[in-house]
Nucleic acid binder design. Structure first.
Lengths: 164, 164
DNA sequence: CGCAATTACTTTGCGCGCAACGAATATTGG
DNA sequence: CCAATATTCGTTGCGCGCAAAGTAATTGCG
């Protein structure tokens, strides 16, 4: 890398592309990262990352899961889930084991320590809500709009794959 | 890892935690990843990842940038930007160089090849819009709701840091 | 002026996310 | 029953995203 001359190059011309910070995709990307960053200091005392917290919430809700359940609910693939679950197992929060009736499947169950961690996580959603501080109605409307958006995106993607 | 017995363990009890797939944070996380996945096949022919596309859009808009501009607009830190910009430089899409008037700052300018790439990217926003297929009004409302949400999150985060 | 604080960037380490490839088990069709 | 196919999971490689620590240049203050 070399030092550069002082002049400014000519701008790129007219702009058929919308400005980056006015596009839906960027609004989503920025909002998602901002919210995950909000969780970080609350999850750090529990020793959890945000995706690990999602996995633990599903386990707290169901008590047990198969790995493919995490995949279908959280939309994560095995390349992400396998090492993530291994780390949680090493930390003693869960056990993993093959289903004897179908040796392909891996069942995941909470340990007592994993169950106990739930109590320390109970205040998190409310704490997050206080910081975000949006009217309940607007908060709910935004959440539902995101679900419709995601559903449309996944449907559109499927449409592309089946014909063109 | 060992095979496991057949029985299901008892569920975790009552659920003061809302279900994972009904929380705002997960709606955001899922929507953001779904949309980025929608861009992937469109960006792959250009040899760009999604964050690289964001950087290029800002450059197409301004012609040149300082590294800290990417940081403030895209909310990315140097640990992400430095290697990303190096990869784009190796690909010949931009040049990086120290500002002779302030040797701390690094200026980033498009190469001719980087400018030419813009033409191949022009159809992307419209193609994405066709796949998402939401009424213009709802699309816009969701985008603005996300901007308000992000603004509130960042303001709330700042509030936590200044007093407690 | 001198020196502490600040700014702009780089580097390292770690945990995702995802594609691509591969392995093992289960299911289905002939 | 056997072969082809599908399902479930694992591994590898790469590019983010972020924290923490470090470097070099500039600014601000007494």
């Amino acid at each position: 890398m070399v030092t550069m001359p002082d002049r400014s190059p000519a701008p790129a011309g007219d702009f058929p592309l919308p400005a980056v910070d006015e596009q839906m995709c960027f609004a989503l990307y920025a909002a998602s990262r901002a919210v995950v960053n909000l969780y970080r200091p609350l999850l750090e005392p529990l020793g959890l990352t945000y995706p690990q917290y999602l996995v633990m919430m599903l386990l707290w809700e169901r008590g047990e899961c198969w790995v493919k359940d995490f995949g279908s609910v959280l939309q994560l693939d095995y390349g992400t889930l396998t090492p993530l679950l291994k780390r949680l197992e090493v930390r003693g929060l869960l056990h993993r084991g093959r289903d004897p009736r179908d040796e392909r499947s891996v069942r995941v169950v909470l340990t007592d320590e994993g169950r106990r961690l739930r109590e320390r996580a109970e205040g998190i959603p409310e704490a997050i809500g206080r910081v975000i501080d949006l009217p309940e109605e607007e908060f709910e409307a935004t959440r539902l709009a995101l679900r419709r958006l995601t559903a449309n995106v996944l449907a559109g993607e499927a449409r592309l794959h089946e014909d063109g």
